[in-house]
């Protein structure tokens, strides 16, 4: 019975990510110190995972649907700057700054989505374009309006309520964004795996033409997914600005590769049609553990990139194997 359930677990998209997570946790407990699993240690990688995870899930959904979004690398700092410029520099109410940040994400997402749907240019190229365009805009406007590339947003201007909701350390080291990440992940899991909406995403990534023929509004869904990823990116930027009381132009580029690594380690097929939110979740945690775990070992931190690279390759190979197992699966005759 137990061997049977392990088999059915292995056929799921998140199998690789889960095994990977166990492996890297074991690795860092053996080679590092147990302080890695004490609250302060957990906070160090959970904070990274939460910030990355909120962006990685919608980026992963886009990948399941057969698209890519790398413009998030610019949308994150742009969202941070929007709230800092509106509410910090111009002293407008914080809700206006937040609306400005999220609105910016919405607009970037709409532009990405509409361009991809209308022009049929690969989304990698479209979002590469908007990546640089948004970065240029953020830098240009920041210097033009405030004369600096680092805009302050004092806690007084954020107000205690917004601080508590979006930018505070719980227990001294856990960022409140962790709660947002967990809540959003739960919402995503529901909509992607338990509602018809999720079925459409998988169908789109599997075969866009057939999906459209089956009556799925593929164009609208594509635009919605791009808006989701850009708005999530702006949300993360906004939270960072509120947490650190400052927004900087150059604080998002690492998110591009990191989110793609999390998603692929999480078992999403790069060409679309296969994956799971739980997989992306575990992939993100795995990435964060490797990224932060190195500080708890005696190794030089430069080795962490090597570990991430090897992990990515192993994960892809492993996920291929599991996917083939899933394809070959047929129930045994009773």
């Amino acid at each position: 019975m137990s061997s049977l359930s392990i088999r059915s677990l292995l056929r799921r998209p998140e199998a690789g990510a889960l095994l990977g997570l166990v492996a890297v946790l074991a690795f860092f407990v053996v080679f590092g110190s147990t302080s890695f699993l004490k609250p302060a240690g957990i906070a160090s990688w959970l904070n990274v995972a939460a910030n990355l995870g909120i962006v990685a899930i919608p980026v992963g959904l886009l990948m399941i649907a057969g698209e890519l979004d790398i413009s998030i690398g610019a949308t994150i700092p742009a969202g941070a700057l929007a709230v800092a410029i509106i509410s910090g520099h111009y002293s407008q109410p914080i809700w206006m700054g937040m609306a400005g940040a999220l609105g910016l994400g919405l607009v970037v997402g709409l532009i990405n989505g509409i361009l991809v749907v209308r022009t049929a240019v690969p989304s990698l190229i479209v979002t590469l374009g908007t990546l640089f365009a948004v970065q240029g805009l953020a830098l240009g406007f920041s210097v033009l309006l405030t004369g600096t590339t680092s805009v302050a947003l004092s806690p007084a201007k954020s107000g205690p309520l917004v601080k508590a909701l979006f930018g505070e350390f719980i227990g001294g080291s856990f960022q409140v964004i962790i709660c947002w990440w967990l809540a959003l992940a739960a919402v995503y899991i529901f909509y992607v795996h338990f509602s018809p909406f999720g079925n459409w995403i998988f169908a789109m990534g599997g075969d866009k033409v057939s999906a459209r023929n089956a009556g799925i509004p593929t164009r609208r869904l594509t635009i919605v997914l791009f808006v989701l990823s850009s708005t999530s990116a702006a949300f993360v930027g906004m939270c960072q600005a509120i947490l650190f009381n400052v927004a900087q132009v150059s604080a998002g580029m690492t998110f591009i590769f990191n989110s793609i690594i999390s998603v692929v380690v999480g078992g999403v097929l790069l060409t679309g049609g296969f994956g799971s939110v739980a997989g992306i979740f575990f992939g993100t945690v795995t990435f964060a553990v490797v990224n932060q775990g190195i500080y708890f070992t005696t190794f030089d931190r430069n080795w962490s990139s090597l570990i991430i690279g090897i992990m990515l390759l192993l994960a892809v190979l492993m996920n291929n194997t599991f996917r083939n197992m899933a394809l070959a699966y047929r129930p045994r005759k009773k």
Binding site: P196, A203, S210, F274
Partner: peptide, 27 residues
């Protein structure tokens, strides 16, 4: 049909049967 989807999910693409109501419709 969609190679990486289950037979049931693929069969009902676009017209998924659901249980529940409102935003909590379950496939």
């Amino acid at each position: 049909t969609f190679p990486l989807m289950s037979i049931g999910r693929s069969f009902f693409v676009g017209v998924e049967p659901t249980r529940g109501f409102g935003p909590f419709k379950i496939y």
